[in-house]
């Protein structure tokens, strides 16, 4: 019996794909945002609201990830921007390989800003970089008061956190200040914005916090 040294990383291939995606996007002057968050937190609504505010200034594209259906793609298409739907089947998060295939379906010369809506899941996407330049986590007050404390890996990665459905905070007896405090403990540099994906409240502030090209 002898020992064979290996020393190889299990997730290296995904990282290589993510690096390639990042380079391809950067080389084409595209700024990409990975939009993550639980099922039903309002990721699509927030993307739609951002598009409404920016579509006359920026050429926007969207990749919509879901297990199945093209519901999100259809909703975003209403805003008149190109959308590619990724159906993952049974996979609980987007990986860099899936995203690479979707990116190449766009005419990259026609896009300045790309939103990649991850599969609704506050856990798995945190372990799988896809090559975006920025990470936006959309969470909502209806998910309860402990979402940030309970899911540190996701919130540690976030550049910006949108706390959506803030109009329900009072009914849910939830303090927005407590969320801010929870976030500051695990990720002090992350931005925090309260939003309402239906009315667009807070979305301008969100765009400013994310420092999106305008």
């Amino acid at each position: 019996m002898e020992i064979v040294k290996i020393g190889k990383e299990a997730m290296k291939k995904n990282e290589n794909f993510a690096d390639k995606n990042n380079k391809l996007l950067t080389d084409n002057d595209i700024f990409a945002v990975d939009v993550m968050g639980s099922v039903g937190s309002g990721k699509t609504s927030i993307i739609k609201q951002i598009i409404k505010k920016l579509k006359n200034k920026q050429r926007i594209g969207v990749i919509a990830g879901d297990l199945t259906t093209e519901i999100d793609a259809r909703r975003i298409e209403e805003e008149g921007v190109p959308v590619i739907q990724i159906q993952t089947g049974r996979v609980c998060h987007l990986d860099a390989g899936l995203v690479q295939k979707a990116i190449t379906k766009f005419n990259l010369a026609d896009i300045d800003l790309l939103f990649i809506e991850n599969v609704g899941n506050l856990i798995c996407p945190a372990g799988c970089p896809i090559g975006a330049h920025m990470e936006l986590v959309v969470t909502s007050v209806t998910e309860g008061p402990y979402m940030i404390q309970k899911h540190p890996p996701m919130f540690q990665r976030a550049d910006t956190v949108a706390m959506n459905k803030i109009d329900f905070a009072e009914k849910m007896e939830i303090s927005i200040e407590n969320f801010k405090e929870d976030l500051s403990k695990i990720n002090p540099t992350s931005k925090f914005v309260g939003t309402n994906g239906l009315t667009g409240e807070g979305v301008e502030e969100l765009i400013e916090c994310m420092n999106l090209p305008q």
């Binding site: 019996m1 064979v4 040294k5 020393g7 190889k8 990383e9 299990a10 997730m11």
Partner: peptide, 9 residues
């Protein structure tokens, strides 16, 4: 990282 380090064969 998740590292496959070595094996006995």
């Amino acid at each position: 990282r998740c590292l496959v380090e070595e094996m006995e064969v």
